[in-house]
């Protein structure tokens, strides 16, 4: 079971999914405070048709073309969500629900057509739905690793700006920070994280890697700085452990394992987290009840003493 760890190819895959997890954890933290967690899910599903079209255009599975296609298609999805809510009476959540399902349906339709065509079923495009880290070749691994590092760097150097932008955008604008520029950068790093992640984690579950780590991190800290670090840590752990577990079996999809690891970390945080975790909240209430109970008792005794 441990033998796969010694394979150098696997070590690279593991390093890349871990870096992906770190990037997703950080971007997810931004999405959490932008109150756009669901947006990442909509964009991930919107990426599928782009992957297939990218494959159809060049006729082979070249990662650069596939993720370019995915990015274009996700951005088109983002544009539709924006456009629908700004120019119709349809609200954002409905717009996201529509775009998500329509793009995903379109993607599956194209995928079916490709798979039926000659040689198509050998394309391995199916792995983009639930992810297959084991199917990654060297170019895939390095593309993912480099782009994830770019995303991490962008968040790291602009830490102060991100905080201001998320907490009080109006104040940010007052100080001269361009909101439209920040929104563009935010969308770009979100889409980048999604498209580099879909091969390893899949379009359906990549959103979980963006959403769950930041929520878990929220249970441990009241500082944005530490929330970002913890979210990165939880994301990285989920990516690495999930990939490792899925590699134990032959042909096991990676995405579900990553999500399960992330979910275990979340349940642990929900129960034991020091900031409003269930256990600590219960314990604090218990102590408080006991304290008030004791005060009451003492006061009754005091009254009795007078009599």
């Amino acid at each position: 079971m441990w033998s796969i760890l010694t394979s150098s190819n696997f070590q690279w895959v593991l390093a890349s999914t871990m870096t992906l997890g770190i990037a997703s954890g950080m971007v997810g933290c931004l999405a959490y405070w932008k109150k756009q967690s669901l947006m990442s899910d909509a964009l991930a599903h919107s990426a599928l048709p782009g992957v297939i079209i990218g494959f159809l255009v060049i006729g082979e599975k070249n990662i650069i073309f596939l993720i370019t296609g995915a990015a274009v298609s996700a951005l088109v999805g983002a544009f539709f969500i924006q456009w629908i809510q700004s120019s119709t009476r349809i609200t954002e959540d409905t717009a996201m629900g529509m775009v998500l399902s329509i793009f995903f349906g379109l993607g599956i339709m194209l995928l079916t057509i490709v798979n039926r065509s000659a040689g198509g079923n050998q394309s391995g495009l199916d792995s983009f739905i639930f992810g297959q880290a084991a199917s990654m070749v060297k170019l895939d691994v390095f593309t993912m690793l480099i782009l994830a590092l770019v995303v991490i760097t962008i968040i790291f150097i602009g830490f102060k700006e991100w905080k201001l932008f998320l907490f009080d955008p109006q104040h940010a604008k007052g100080l001269g920070l361009s909101l439209s520029m920040m929104n563009v950068i935010y969308t770009l790093i979100l889409v980048t994280t999604i498209v580099i992640g879909i091969q390893a984690v899949g379009v359906i579950l990549i959103a979980a890697l963006l959403i769950i780590p930041s929520v878990s991190a929220r249970y441990w800290t009241n500082s944005f700085h530490y929330m970002l670090i913890l979210s990165a840590l939880f994301g990285g752990l989920s990516g690495a452990f999930g990939t490792y577990l899925s590699a134990v079996g032959k042909g096991w999809p990676t995405g579900p394992f990553i999500v399960v690891v992330a979910a275990i970390l979340f349940i642990f945080s929900l129960l034991f987290g020091k900031e409003k975790g269930l256990l600590i909240t219960w314990f604090e209430q218990y102590l408080e009840r006991k304290r008030i109970g004791t005060t009451k008792q003492t006061s009754t005794i005091g009254t009795k003493g007078v009599n």
Partner: peptide, 26 residues
């Protein structure tokens, strides 16, 4: 106009008033 649940403290919010003077990315 803001979400007060945001994870930060009072001093940090006041420091945000200085971001223009501090300079971007510093």
């Amino acid at each position: 106009s803001v979400d007060w649940d945001f994870p930060t403290n009072a001093l940090d919010v006041v420091v945000m008033g200085l971001y223009g003077q501090i300079g971007w990315l510093k």
